[in-house]
Amino acid sequence: ESIKNENEFLKDALSSLQELYEEDRNTIATLTEQLKLSQQEVEFMRRKYKLMWGKVIDDHASQ
């Protein structure tokens, strides 16, 4: 009986760990996607400001 109870406990513990692992995998996937989008946004802003400041410098140089 005690072995049966221990096996049931271990099975429940393993099930809980698998659920936590799956939740962590989903969290990592979500964070990875958010990071990718943030990196794209930063790159866009870099290009935008580079173009903007390039135009300002060109305008100033032509005056």
Rank of each mutant, 00 (worst) to 15 (best):
Glu6Lys: 09
Ile57Met: 00
Leu10Gln: 09
Arg47Thr: 11
Trp53His: 08
Asn5Arg: 08
Glu1Phe: 13
Lys48Ser: 05
Lys48Cys: 03
Ser2Lys: 10
Arg47Ile: 04
Gln34Ser: 14
Asn7Thr: 12
Lys36Val: 05
Glu19Phe: 02
Gly54Trp: 01
Leu31Met: 05
Glu1Tyr: 06
Val42Gly: 02
Phe44Asp: 08
Ser62Pro: 07
Ile3Tyr: 00
Asn7Val: 15
Ser15Gly: 01
Leu35Lys: 15
Met52Asn: 12
Arg46Asp: 06
Leu31His: 07
Ser15Trp: 01
Glu41Asp: 12
Arg25Gln: 14
Glu43Cys: 09
Ala13Ser: 10
Val56Glu: 03
Arg25Trp: 09
Ser38Arg: 14
Gln63Ala: 14
Leu37Trp: 01
Gln34Tyr: 04
Glu23Val: 01
Trp53Tyr: 13
Glu43Tyr: 10
Ala13Gln: 09
Val56Ser: 01
Arg46Trp: 02
Tyr21Leu: 07
Lys48Ile: 01
Asp24Ile: 12
Glu6His: 04
Gln63Met: 13
His60Gly: 03
Glu19Pro: 01
Arg47Lys: 14
Glu43Arg: 13
Tyr21Lys: 00
Leu31Tyr: 11
Glu41Phe: 04
Val56Arg: 02
Ala29Gln: 07
His60Phe: 14
Met52Val: 15
Gln40Phe: 00
Ile57Cys: 06
Ala61Thr: 10
Ala61Met: 09
Asp24Asn: 07
Lys55Pro: 03
Glu8Arg: 04
Asp59Gln: 05
Leu10Ala: 06
Glu6Thr: 14
Lys36Leu: 06
Tyr21Ser: 11
Lys36Ser: 15
Glu43Ser: 11
Gln34Asn: 13
His60Cys: 06
Phe44Tyr: 08
Lys4Ser: 12
